[in-house]
């Protein structure tokens, strides 16, 4: 068996999501290699080589990989896939964009968003917003897989001793052109890797009220998220969205504020270790999954929470 992990990075840093995919790859067994495709990204390849368990890092350094465009990435994957039994990427917007395109070119039925490796052919994946877990078996010669990052620990970095080898580029497909990005800038941790997440829902009533939960987030070093309802209502941008069609998170502590607990939201956070719900409606379904429920008006409770945390010396 030979497993290739498609690294996600921004040409300077290896993204943590990659480390979770590596752990899934190690569970499959056999040799494990990493593909770093980007531009002026030799530093990323060095980081990748230091990930525990990685043998070889294949580095494809060319302008057409600078922004991870799916058309170019898929061409490259098709060129290298024959050397592997499994090609894995994290189930991030990058992996979701690139992998199915490569899978179709290889005539293989991708397995999306796996949460468990049963054996080299058999995987568990959530379906129906996580209301069911399907165990599926693939007989495709090369298996293309995206990995639910919250279901696998991050592989260790720093201790690996992989070697970097250069890979010829596959050329620009000439089908799409990167124009620019508007990335959210925040001092807070990234949602999918934060130890604590605090999310607001429709109960927040307006985007102008989100500073209430941001204040708590800053006391706890938490990331800020939102329900689909809050995103739909325009309170916050889509990249805050936690749920079936947004991000999946599994922090140590998840605080749901003014979130009713629709199926689609629970799909994105119910694997959190400890869940707190603050909602004035005691019938809200969120209380059925919460370890600690506080039935209260969030506009009173959340400022009180921030004061209490301050009093106890958090975030000072």
């Amino acid at each position: 068996m030979a497993v290739l992990i498609v690294a996600e990075h921004d040409n300077s840093e290896l993204k943590p999501a990659t480390l979770h995919a590596v752990t899934a790859g190690l569970a499959i067994g056999g040799g494990l290699e990493l593909l770093v495709a980007g531009h002026d990204c030799a530093g990323v390849a060095e980081q990748a080589a230091s990930v525990a368990g990685v043998g070889t890092v294949k580095l494809a350094d060319a302008p057409e990989y600078a922004n991870g465009l799916a058309e170019n990435m898929a061409r490259l994957l098709v060129q290298v896939a024959a050397d592997y039994t499994h090609v894995l990427a994290p189930a991030t917007t990058f992996g979701k964009d690139v992998m199915p395109r490569a899978a179709a070119l290889l005539d293989t039925q991708q397995i999306s968003d796996i949460s468990e490796v049963v054996d080299a052919d058999t995987f568990v994946r959530p379906i129906y917003a996580g209301n069911a877990l399907a165990t599926v078996q693939s007989s495709d010669a090369v298996k293309l897989i995206t990995v639910r990052t919250t279901a696998f620990e991050a592989a260790e970095t720093g201790s690996g001793s992989g070697t970097v080898t250069a890979l010829g580029a596959a050329g620009d497909a000439g089908l799409s052109r990167y124009v620019g990005s508007e990335l959210s800038s925040s001092e807070r941790p990234e949602l999918t890797s934060a130890r604590v997440v605090i999310s607001g829902g429709r109960g927040m009533q307006s985007g102008e009220n989100f500073p209430l939960i941001e204040a708590v987030a800053d006391r706890l070093g938490a990331a800020v998220g939102a329900s689909r309802a809050a995103v739909d209502a325009g309170y916050v941008p889509n990249d805050y969205q936690v749920g079936q069609t947004g991000k999946v998170v599994a922090p140590e502590l998840y605080i749901a504020v003014g979130i009713s607990g629709a199926i689609q939201h629970l799909a994105g956070m119910k694997d959190s270790k400890v869940i707190v719900a603050i909602n004035k409606d005691e019938e809200a379904p969120i209380f059925q999954v919460a370890d600690y429920g506080l039935v209260a008006d969030l506009f009173k409770a959340v400022p009180e929470l921030e004061e209490e945390l301050e009093r106890q010396g958090y975030g000072t």
Partner: peptide, 12 residues
């Protein structure tokens, strides 16, 4: 495009 860190603009 809605991507993990925010928005990405592309032309095709």
């Amino acid at each position: 495009r809605e991507v993990d860190g925010g928005l990405q603009n592309i032309e095709l």
